[in-house]
Amino acid sequence: MSEQKPSVPSRWALWLPLVLFGAFVALVLYGLQRPAEREVRSAMIGKPLPQFVLRAAVDDRPGLSFADMADGKPKLLNIFASWCIPCAVEAPQLAQLRAQGIDVVGVAIRDKPDDLKAFLQRHGNPFSRIGADDVSAIQFAVGSSGVPESFVIDGKGTIRYQHIGEIRADQVEMIVQKVREAGQ
């Protein structure tokens, strides 16, 4: 028979589980406090737009390309679609921005020309250019993950700011500010 030498695990090892558990509780407490961020933000802020060319989405507005964006003037790039309900909600705000002299350019995602025409007739057309993107390519290029999203682009074609979701009435001033900042 082997002798019955009582082998006691070292003291610190016995408290280790409690310490680890304490760390877990601290971690999830922190996690519960933090505001839940659900959106995926673009990592392209401060980086230039990639090269792209989009055909015109409607007859009465030209299409959109990188060269149009880097023409020296800051712009608001609005990614929208006629089938997207929040896009209709933000239309008055876009009109307001237009009225304040902001150059708003649009990209219509996965849209049919007739639907788009009807949408612009009903909700107004604040866009100086509208490019058509049927495979969300421009979204992947700028790090956008849904519609509507708006990007402030400076005169050199660099992305300055990303706005996720529709622009609310109380956010118009903030957007104007961002575009003015990009123009300096």
Partner: peptide, 10 residues
């Protein structure tokens, strides 16, 4: 949430 009428990409 929102559905595009266009068919899926190629």
């Amino acid at each position: 949430l929102a559905n595009s009428p266009l068919p899926s990409a190629p």
